[in-house]
Simulated assay, not measured.
Amino acid sequence: MDLLPSRYKIHKTKLRWILTMMTMMMMMVMRRGESMRLDMESGNTKCISDDIKTNYMTVGTYSIVNPNEGHHLPPSHKLFVTVSSPKGKSHHHAENVESGKFVFTAEETGDYMTCFVAPGYRPTAKFAVDFEWKSGVEAKDWTTIAKRGQITMLEVEVRKLLDVTETIHEEMFQLIEREREMQELNRSTNSRMAALSLLSFVVTMSVAGLQLRHLKSFLERKKLL
């Protein structure tokens, strides 16, 4: 009768250790979400950029901090919010809002820009905005996925690791492609430098030859040769 509880404890210990190791691995390689608080003032604009890869999902939530809990926000506490791609495509636009959320999948790689504009107001008002921006694996709602698929948290952690592995795999290919592009650029630069050096040498020797010819002619006219 004592063996069953003992084995059960060992099983729980191993499971806890596995989850701990998986969590540490994910913390090291998984892209973390950015949570911040922005100090805004009427008439001012603040923009935040994030480098997002193609086909990465991104989720952002924002809300004005209520200085008086239990009361409505004053009319001065409003925001204009825009989210745009590196090429200027709009992915989110909101006017005179107190909070909001945007979700989209990146169609191109580059810096995506989120801008918060506090409209002009008199007298000038100051307020804070809580903003959280997640991309990649972190952007997925794993709790909803677990409930929908009726799977355990261990399976959720495994799926996270699989997604992280795929992300690392894609980034490795991108790094290899960038390295190939850099090598081609280096070869092209070296070829151009070699051609420029050769051209400089030819020009220098030509000028030296002309100078010698001119000096010889001068000395002959002066009957010094």
Rank of each mutant, 00 (worst) to 15 (best):
K12W: 01
F173Y: 07
T167I: 05
L38F: 03
R148E: 08
T61P: 01
D130T: 04
S135F: 01
T143D: 14
S42P: 10
E138L: 01
Q211T: 14
S206V: 08
H214T: 08
K46V: 08
M113W: 01
R187P: 07
M1P: 08
G120P: 03
P5C: 02
V117C: 02
P67A: 09
L161Q: 12
I151M: 06
T152Y: 00
Y8T: 07
Q183D: 12
E184H: 11
E69I: 04
T152H: 00
T23N: 01
E157F: 08
G209E: 13
N44V: 05
P123R: 05
S206Y: 06
T61H: 02
K53V: 15
D163C: 03
M26W: 11
F116C: 00
L19Q: 05
M113L: 08
R159S: 10
K140N: 14
P67R: 09
K222E: 15
S84A: 13
Y8W: 08
L162P: 02
M205Y: 05
D163H: 02
L225G: 02
P74V: 07
S188T: 06
L185G: 11
L185N: 11
M172P: 05
N44S: 09
G70N: 10
S99Q: 11
A125R: 06
T105R: 13
D39H: 15
N186G: 15
V207C: 03
V59G: 02
R213E: 08
T13R: 14
T54W: 08
L175M: 09
K223D: 06
N66V: 11
A128W: 09
H91C: 03
S90A: 04
S206T: 12
N55K: 15
T105E: 14
E171T: 07
A106N: 10
P119D: 07
M26D: 13
I168L: 04
V29M: 14
E34D: 15
M193H: 02
G100D: 05
M40R: 07
M182A: 14
T105M: 13
N190I: 04
I52R: 02
C47M: 03
K223V: 06
